[in-house]
Write a protein that binds this DNA or RNA. Structure first.
Lengths: 237, 237
DNA sequence: CCGGCGCCCTAACACAGGTTATTTTCAGCC
DNA sequence: GGCTGAAAATAACCTGTGTTAGGGCGCCGG
């Protein structure tokens, strides 16, 4: 990857025209890449960042911690995702952002970032799109947590993440990186770790997936997608 | 209410400056109010609307229907909420919008609406804010469905809706309108109707709320908020 | 004034998923 | 090459929620 916004551009260009001069403008506003080690907190809950963070490599999660100590991951982000574009408009983070793997990120200060949006209509549109896309993924998770069994939810998560990895050029055939522990997976699916483990075992036993050393391989896409009731529409608005 | 955007302005002005000329500009773009009866579908799933819909009165829900027939409400909207501002940026609805009570809405064609955003920086900011706010509510619902018991989830829903009603001037003391059937409530909380009923009974029996004829009265805010682990921050970014 | 039909409510039982506790695996490392 | 600590796996038991199957009440239309 030459530039920190390449994967973002790749994703956006599936859908929008981003002229080269606009791309260059955003590029010029990004700070040099920064690294976080697996487990590090990238943004604290209730922080008030004055910059937005773009994933260049790795996987990060938005984590909400309740008073009683329960934790829930509300979003997962891979290369090409803005982790907190919404911080341009909201005063406070309602969640922390945690590196789930070694991560490389580039940040853009809010001032210059907002200027890019006002000076380049393509970015004004694209930023609105990214915000709306994020919310569409949130909605699908609401359905997943509210109306699907743990098995179906896990299957759905895999279908979604494979598709998103593919769209930024990070899926190799039916495989992609999923550097989560089962504890973290449980925090995504709203399960206990014990049950998360049961679910993983169950999809493995049925020959739907293989998952070892931080890498998932999808063995039977059709049955997996059927179990998940996966419909890519919400990712490809 | 004199104008269809009054409640929206009221909400936004808690946080942003909206100059009178900007307000007038949005106003001039809104179509005359339209009515929907309780139960009517306002926007179809997979529709591609070319206008955005603002609630003027009533309650509406965004409803996702899975292939297996399961239904999940992903958002509830009251007066002052844009129900589908995201349709400005996304091609297709990933959900339908249903009137849960008799509703009055006003729509704004996408073209003129986008022009308002480009001509009035206040609206460019406010629209981004509304999109980001919507997503913040989605995230809280993810936590509610993933990590809270049915009782806590229902308590949280009530705390959220009371706060939102208050912010647009629709709460009378500790009471507000909640014109849902228990079937619809179950579709919000991701429960069976039987269990939704159990949960309602249980909060009533504990003296936390009263709920009859489409009206909720909060009897003990402190205990309700504690049960819900309610923190208004996400609504007041 | 009497159906009919939503909606609310209940009961009994089944099961998905949670809890607590222990064991096993495995990668790093002195 | 045997420690160590984190992650994965398993076991036994418990509980929240789902399912199926009703009953009853109140409002609206005839």
């Amino acid at each position: 990857m030459h530039s920190s916004i390449d994967r973002l551009l790749r994703k956006l260009r599936l859908r929008w025209e981003i002229p080269p001069d606009a791309a260059a403008a955003l590029e010029s506003v990004m700070q040099p890449p920064r690294r976080y080690a697996r487990g590090e907190e990238m943004i604290a809950q209730f922080a008030k960042p004055n910059e937005s963070t773009l994933m260049v490599a790795g996987v990060a999660g938005r984590l909400v911690t309740l008073e009683d100590g329960a934790e829930q991951v509300t979003a997962l982000h891979i290369a090409g995702d803005f982790v907190d574009l919404h911080s341009l408009y909201l005063r406070r983070q309602d969640h922390s952002v945690v590196a789930l793997d070694d991560c490389v990120v580039a940040t853009a200060p809010h001032g210059p970032l907002a200027e890019v949006a006002t000076n380049y209509p393509a970015w004004a549109l694209a930023f609105g799109y990214l915000l709306a896309w994020d919310a569409a993924v949130h909605r699908r998770w609401i359905v997943m947590l509210g109306r699907q069994t743990a098995r179906a939810a896990f299957a759905h998560l895999i279908c979604e993440l494979w598709t998103r990895n593919r769209d930024v050029g990070l899926a190799e055939g039916p495989a992609f990186d999923l550097p989560l522990t089962q504890v973290e997976l449980a925090n995504v699916l709203g399960l206990s770790t014990v049950h998360a483990n049961r679910v993983v075992q169950s999809l493995r036993a049925e020959g739907l997936i293989r998952w070892r050393s931080a890498r998932v391989e999808i063995l039977d896409w059709d049955r997996l997608a059927a179990l998940a009731q996966f419909d890519t529409a919400y990712l490809q608005h």
